[in-house]
């Protein structure tokens, strides 16, 4: 039987399809709730990685907003504010990082694939714990 017949002989959708979609969406929603729930620390730390390696790490506290150039190879500029961090300038092609806007909660990330840079927010005490584990 050809694949084309295979498709024609199948139902448009079955109970299995509905169950699959339901399970996938439930699991995803639970993950999203968990990811955005850990607001335990009152201070935020932004960790900038290039190729998965930490290149910058700074606290977002009461200082006035400041800009940081992240990379020499490409120009990527972050704007660090009291309540979050955003990419305001990037050499990348897709500008997804800039369009992501400001991230404000622990666990949220900005990713720039073409430039291979990521920015992730941590609650300060969580970061301490991570440092303790990784030495």
């Amino acid at each position: 039987m050809s694949l084309s017949d295979n498709i024609r002989n199948r139902k448009k959708f079955t109970a299995f399809d509905v169950a699959l979609a339901f399970v996938l969406i439930c699991v995803s929603v639970i993950l999203i709730v968990f990811q955005n729930a850990n607001t335990s620390g009152d201070r935020l730390r932004a960790v900038v990685k290039k190729n998965g390696v930490i290149v910058q790490s700074f606290l977002l506290d009461d200082t006035s907003p400041f800009e940081i150039c992240v990379d020499d190879e490409y120009s990527v500029v972050l704007l660090a504010e009291k309540d979050g961090v955003s990419v305001i300038l990037s050499d990348c092609t897709d500008k997804i990082c800039v369009n992501t806007g400001k991230i404000t909660k622990p666990g949220q990330t900005i990713v720039c694939l073409p430039v291979r840079i990521s920015v992730e927010l941590f609650a300060e005490n969580e970061q301490n714990r991570l440092d303790g584990v990784t030495g």
């Binding site: 990811q35 998965g52 694939l113």
Partner: peptide, 25 residues
């Protein structure tokens, strides 16, 4: 993406699955 920029991308897994369910249907 995981190999290119590391485990930070895990954040997007649930969003990508939800997008895939609708696009795939």
């Amino acid at each position: 993406a995981f190999f290119v920029i590391g485990n930070t991308v895990r954040y997007y897994v649930p969003y990508l699955i939800i997008a895939a369910v609708f696009a795939g249907a």
